[in-house]
Amino acid sequence: MKYFAILRGINVGGKRKIPMADLREKLQNIGCQNIQTYIQSGNIIFNRKKENDLILADRLEKFILSTYGFEVPVIIRNAEEIKKSVSENPFFKDEVTAERLHLSFLKKTPDPENIQKAKNASYEPDAFEVVDKNVFVYCTGKYSDSKLTNKFFENKLKVPATTRNWKTVLKLLEFAEEE
């Protein structure tokens, strides 16, 4: 089965460095095959026998801790989930809109009451929609200026999150469509 491991907070500002070539090589030791990475921010595509997402994420988090000496949150999606995420984005209309879009991947589906708490918070002029294990984000300006950060969603939804811009999400879709 094709999986995507989306790592949070690596290779940013010289901290928590993980060389992608080294990671690709070492992942073979834990049963991953056909390993590819996309950019240095921690997007790993690989094949592996079918496994529960949360168990696989936990296994990869422990592997990274034991190999590199620091904790890295890992969120798992399979190819079908990546395809579904792109098709479900309520904000994706055209290329101009795409520049304003981000996808926050959640480790699991948040409780409905936490979703409501997040919607009640002040985050304008930006917008978001939670769909299953995804938060679709529309920013009117730069993402770095938005209140809709990983920390915002983690605090409100009580679920680990990591965010990618829409260009990266569309590249992950290309990998998902490869057979």
Rank of each mutant, 00 (worst) to 15 (best):
E25L: 10
N47V: 03
N78F: 07
K93E: 14
N120P: 00
D22Q: 10
V135H: 05
A21Y: 05
I76P: 08
V72C: 03
Q36M: 00
R59V: 00
E71P: 08
I44F: 06
K62G: 08
K133S: 06
V96I: 15
R77Q: 13
Q40H: 12
I115R: 12
Q33Y: 11
I82K: 06
I45F: 08
I82G: 06
F105L: 11
L103Y: 05
K107W: 04
K50E: 13
L27P: 01
V72W: 00
K84D: 14
D94I: 07
S41D: 10
L27S: 06
T37N: 03
V130S: 05
R100K: 15
K107G: 05
L101H: 02
N47L: 10
N34S: 14
L56V: 00
L65T: 10
N34K: 13
K133Q: 09
Y123N: 01
I44M: 11
E129R: 06
R59C: 00
K117V: 09
L54N: 09
T97Y: 06
E81L: 01
L60Q: 00
T109E: 06
D94T: 12
N89A: 12
I55H: 04
R48F: 00
N78H: 08
S104T: 15
I76G: 06
E124M: 10
A57C: 06
E80Y: 04
I18V: 15
G13Y: 08
S41M: 14
Y38C: 07
D53E: 12
Y38E: 04
D53N: 15
E99C: 07
S41Y: 08
S41P: 07
N114L: 10
A121N: 13
P19F: 09
N114E: 14
E113D: 15
V74G: 09
D58M: 10
A118D: 11
T37R: 01
P19I: 08
V96Q: 14
N89D: 15
E88T: 08
K83Q: 12
T97F: 05
N47Y: 04
V96H: 14
N52S: 06
N43Y: 13
Q116L: 13
N34L: 10
R16I: 11
F91M: 14
L101R: 03
D126C: 04
N89T: 15
L65I: 11
S41A: 14
I45C: 04
P125C: 04
S41N: 12
L106Q: 05
K108L: 05
D94P: 08
L101A: 02
S87R: 15
D126E: 04
I76W: 07
K17Q: 15
K17R: 15
V86C: 14
Q40W: 04
R59I: 00
G42D: 08
I35D: 02
A118S: 10
I115L: 14
E81G: 00
K107T: 04
V131T: 10
D132N: 13
R24A: 02
H102S: 09
N78S: 05
P19D: 14
F92I: 05
D58I: 02
K133N: 03
V96T: 15
R24C: 02
A21Q: 13
I82F: 09
K93I: 12
G13K: 06
S104L: 12
E95D: 11
E88M: 12
S87G: 15
K26Y: 00
T37I: 05
K117D: 09
M20K: 03
F92R: 13
A121Q: 11
N78T: 12
E88L: 15
F70D: 12
F105S: 01
T97R: 09
I55G: 01
